Computed example of a mutant assay.
Amino acid sequence: MQDSRRQLKAKESSHKMKGFHFLVFLALAVAFSFASAFDPSPLQDFCVAIPEPENAVFVNGKFCKNPNLTVANDFSFSGLNIPGNTGNRVGSNVTLVNVDRIPGLNTLGISLARLDFAPYGGLNPPHIHPRGTEILVVVEGTLYVGFVTSNPNRLITKVLYPGDVFVFPIGLIHFQFNVAKTNAVAFAGLSSQNPGVITIADAIFGPDPPINPDVLAKAFQLDKDVVEKLQKLFA
């Protein structure tokens, strides 16, 4: 009888151990799958992007210059002290300094922008950056800024003054609007060498070729003629 009990306990212990090993294996598999989902850290100091692929290495979407041939100009840009032209329909201008302006940004995961706003009404329209989080600091003027969370959609806004900082999480719709009677200037850092931008109104009403107006009329609950007018405006 005692031998039977011992054998039964041994079997139970063996099953528990096998179950434990399976859980450990599963946890490790999940951990490695998450780890492999992110870009690896670069294993070189830098990878200055060049347009000519001859005798170059392709890294992160760009060809890399021989590191022994890099110069200071590969890592610099001049001109962010110059105000951008805000004489357009939205009254704003974004001067983006990304990997196309500073080749040395390649693989470093950052970029910079200057934002200029015309007096009251200057707007950086609702848009998203598909590849980067944005951190913005106001240096002149007063801006009303905000972003919209994913479903359920919640609007988070704040009025910013010189020296104030605000963060716009990656991929979320956001905007900046000048609420003062003077010009406004802000600078933004982005967590990508090429964050990309999708301006919502332009993307919806102005793509080429255009979206079928019946689709937009139903999506926005608008008359079809209103949609067609908007498409002509943004075309």
Rank of each mutant, 00 (worst) to 15 (best):
G109T: 14
E134Q: 14
N81R: 06
F168W: 06
V30A: 10
L96F: 13
L43D: 09
A184E: 12
N124H: 04
V227H: 01
D225H: 14
T133P: 12
A37P: 03
F117G: 06
V145G: 14
H21E: 14
V90Y: 08
H127G: 10
F34P: 15
R6S: 08
G121R: 03
G132I: 02
E12T: 14
R6F: 05
L96N: 08
H15N: 10
G122F: 01
H174V: 12
A29F: 07
E12N: 04
R101Y: 04
A56G: 05
D214F: 00
D45W: 07
F177V: 11
D74A: 12
L80Y: 03
I50W: 10
L23S: 10
N66L: 05
I173G: 13
L80G: 02
H129S: 08
S33G: 04
N124V: 15
D100F: 08
A219C: 03
L115F: 13
T70D: 13
I50H: 04
S92L: 14
L160C: 06
A10N: 11
G196K: 09
L23H: 04
S76H: 10
G146Y: 07
G206Y: 05
G61W: 09
V226E: 12
L216W: 00
G104E: 03
L216R: 00
V185I: 08
K65L: 03
F205Y: 00
N194Y: 12
K218G: 02
G121Q: 02
V99P: 03
H21D: 12
F177G: 07
G171M: 04
P169S: 05
V94Y: 09
P42K: 04
L190F: 11
R101M: 03
N81M: 06
F234R: 00
H129Q: 08
D225T: 09
N85T: 00
K65P: 09
D225C: 04
N178S: 14
L80R: 01
I128N: 02
F38E: 15
Q221L: 08
P195W: 03
L172M: 08
L136I: 08
R114M: 01
T107S: 09
P152M: 15
A188G: 03
V197E: 04
A72Y: 12
S33T: 08
T149A: 07
D100Q: 04
L216T: 00
F75Y: 12
I170H: 03
N194G: 03
K181H: 06
E12W: 11
P126E: 07
S78H: 04
F187P: 13
K229L: 11
V167Y: 08
V90I: 02
S76W: 07
P51F: 15
E54V: 13
L172Y: 07
T157S: 05
N85C: 00
S78T: 08
D214Q: 00
G196R: 06
D225I: 11
A56Q: 08
L8G: 14
F117A: 15
F220Y: 01
F175M: 14
Q221W: 03
K16N: 15
G109A: 10
K181L: 15
K62A: 11
V226A: 05
L105W: 06
S41D: 10
S76M: 10
L28K: 14
P152R: 13
V148T: 10
I128Y: 01
H174K: 09
A10R: 13
K229C: 11
T182M: 04
P213K: 01
S150M: 14
S150W: 02
N73T: 10
K9S: 05
A118G: 15
F34A: 10
N124A: 11
